[in-house]
Amino acid sequence: MKSIARLISLLLLAGSVSACASEQPNSLKTPWGKWYFAFTTPKALPAQVTLLKLLDVDGYASTYRTIDQPQGINVGKWSERNSAGNTQFNKADRLLQIMIFCWDSIIDKKVYQSTLFFTQDTWNKMTTPYPDVLEPAKNAYRQTMLIGLAPEGKVRVWLRQYGHSDIPLNDTRITTVSGKDLDMCKGETNFPNGYEYSESIKKFVSGKKYPYGTW
């Protein structure tokens, strides 16, 4: 697992170098300018994303250190329509192959490193139009990806389809590691002095059994 993460990190680094060298057209044409990603967590079970890298379908890499953080209100399980944080900084130009990111699970009091491998199914869903809810004669696109971060280091991923339920990306291969298996995320944390539960977290988890739901 660690060797896979290291290989991905090297690919991302190589991609970022080549991406700076020249601008290439998208190998998979998209009918939109950008796509967006947003993070969500269960209510009162917070997490923070500290570092994220993308490798796109053309082999170009992007690194994000300024990241819009998770927000969520679900209790007990994910919803058919999940609330999420903003996407002001969480955006990209090309379709993605791999996403790898570091996150602090405050409720678990540990750092996780998650890697998502995307498939043709994701690209098809993002580039295929559906009728706009407000103007059915117009096309809308699934340009926003939602990423759920839950206790036990569990990660889920969906595409948002406005006016409808979120679409699970079940073909996405997701791997998550922590502790000695961290590679890119070793030392990446917003809590170098340790984690403390806020009063709202303490109140929410009181009397509940970890992991506080089915995620």
Rank of each mutant, 00 (worst) to 15 (best):
M1D: 14
K2Q: 14
I8W: 07
S9C: 04
L12G: 13
A14W: 12
A14N: 13
A14K: 09
G15W: 09
S16Y: 12
V17L: 14
A19G: 14
E23I: 02
E23M: 03
Q24F: 14
P25F: 06
N26C: 15
S27D: 14
K29G: 06
K29Q: 15
W32Q: 02
K34I: 07
W35I: 00
W35G: 01
F37W: 11
F39P: 01
T40I: 04
P42C: 06
Q48H: 01
Q48T: 10
L52R: 13
L54E: 01
L55T: 06
G59P: 13
G59N: 12
G59Q: 09
Y60P: 02
Y64S: 12
Y64Q: 12
T66M: 12
I67F: 12
D68W: 10
Q69H: 11
Q69R: 11
P70S: 05
Q71P: 01
G72R: 04
I73G: 08
N74D: 15
S79L: 02
R81D: 03
R81C: 01
S83R: 01
A84M: 10
G85M: 07
G85F: 02
G85T: 10
N86I: 03
N86Q: 08
T87L: 08
F89T: 11
N90E: 10
K91M: 11
R94V: 03
L96H: 02
L96Y: 00
Q97N: 15
M99E: 04
C102V: 05
W103S: 00
I107E: 00
D108Q: 09
Q113H: 14
Q113D: 12
F118K: 03
T119A: 07
W123L: 09
N124E: 15
M126K: 10
T128G: 11
P131K: 08
P131I: 12
P131T: 10
D132V: 01
V133F: 10
V133I: 08
P136V: 02
K138W: 03
R142W: 03
R142N: 11
Q143P: 00
T144A: 05
M145F: 00
L146S: 01
G148S: 09
A150C: 08
P151C: 04
P151W: 03
E152V: 08
E152P: 00
K154H: 14
K154P: 04
V155H: 00
R156Q: 13
R156W: 11
V157R: 01
W158E: 00
W158S: 00
W158N: 05
L159D: 06
G163T: 02
H164S: 10
P168T: 06
N170I: 15
N170W: 10
N170Y: 11
N170R: 14
D171C: 05
D171T: 15
D171F: 02
T172F: 09
T176V: 14
V177H: 02
V177W: 04
S178L: 04
K180R: 05
L182N: 05
M184N: 05
M184V: 08
C185E: 06
G187W: 08
E188S: 06
N190P: 02
G194L: 11
G194V: 12
Y197I: 03
Y197Q: 02
E199Y: 03
S200H: 10
I201K: 00
K202P: 07
F204A: 05
V205K: 07
V205D: 07
G207D: 08
G207M: 07
K208Q: 10
K209N: 09
K209D: 08
P211T: 02
P211Q: 09
T214N: 15
T214C: 09
T214G: 11
T214W: 13
W215T: 05
W215R: 03
W215M: 07
